[in-house]
């Protein structure tokens, strides 16, 4: 006996599992199209409570710091050896004299610091003074127990500096503000905003490669030579302790 076929219509679609299959297929396509983004996000949310905490991050950072310190030491040794080979001025980073700032005049007509180390501790006129951030000035005069430091910002104070990226020399001149002027010796400075200004590696007066500041503004069209405004990285107004670098010679 042949069974009569049921009527086919929209009601069949509504009653059957058609919608379930349809939604499943759409979901599959969606997952394929987004490359499983939703699944991965969900997985990360679920995994978050059992992920390794900040301690592991600190271990990794500590490891990186140790690695960097070792590399720095190796590079410094390498640098010293090469400087000796080139007969350039030697600079021993171990020979530093720490001194406290006992009087400060960093914004007045004269921009200077008085520090509590003098001739008795081996401080000499012309030695370099650094603080957190880099070079801050040079020793201007000494007494047996104290020294006077002329800051880089003092109007008219001039030292040689250069930009490592362009390898162009200039004269850093204090203008009374925290932004001294770097007057280039070349017609084209090639300097750009953000360039690091350091002491020249071939300097005979200052220790090489000491950070001075960052270029903030460049005027290539200035006459007689282009200049840049440099933002100092060390702020003499906030420094209570400084270090005097002793030369080997």
């Amino acid at each position: 006996m042949i069974k009569a076929r049921g009527k086919i219509g929209f009601h069949t679609l509504l009653k059957s599992r058609f919608w379930v299959i349809f939604i499943f297929v759409v979901l599959l396509f969606g997952i394929r199209w987004t490359k499983g983004a939703g699944f991965i996000d969900l997985y990360s949310i679920l995994l978050k409570p059992i992920l390794p905490g900040s301690a592991q991050k600190e271990w990794i950072q500590e490891g990186e710091n140790i690695e960097r310190n070792i590399r720095l030491k190796l590079l410094e040794d390498d640098n010293t050896r090469l400087r000796k080979a080139l007969s350039l001025k030697e600079f021993n980073s171990n020979q530093r004299i720490s001194a406290a700032v006992i009087s400060r005049s960093s914004r007045n007509w004269w921009q200077q610091l008085e520090i509590n180390k003098g001739e008795k501790d081996g401080v000499l006129k012309g030695q370099t003074v650094i603080g957190p951030g880099g070079l801050i000035g040079l020793v201007d005069s000494t007494t047996p127990l104290t020294s006077r430091v002329r800051l880089l910002t003092d109007p008219g104070h001039q030292i040689g500096a250069w930009i490592d990226r362009t390898q162009r020399h200039g004269i850093l001149t204090g203008m009374g503000t925290n932004r001294p002027k770097l007057i280039f010796l070349n017609k084209n400075s090639l300097a750009e905003i953000g360039d690091a200004v350091t002491t020249s590696p071939a300097s005979t007066l200052l220790p090489p490669n000491l950070t001075i500041g960052i270029v903030q503004f460049v005027n290539e069209k200035a006459l007689p030579s282009p200049y840049a405004i440099v933002q100092l990285t060390a702020s003499p107004e906030a420094i209570d302790w400084v270090q005097i670098l002793k030369n080997n010679d």
Partner: peptide, 8 residues
């Protein structure tokens, strides 16, 4: 124009 002088 010396801004530092005027300031001081």
């Amino acid at each position: 124009f010396h801004s530092w002088s005027i300031y001081v």
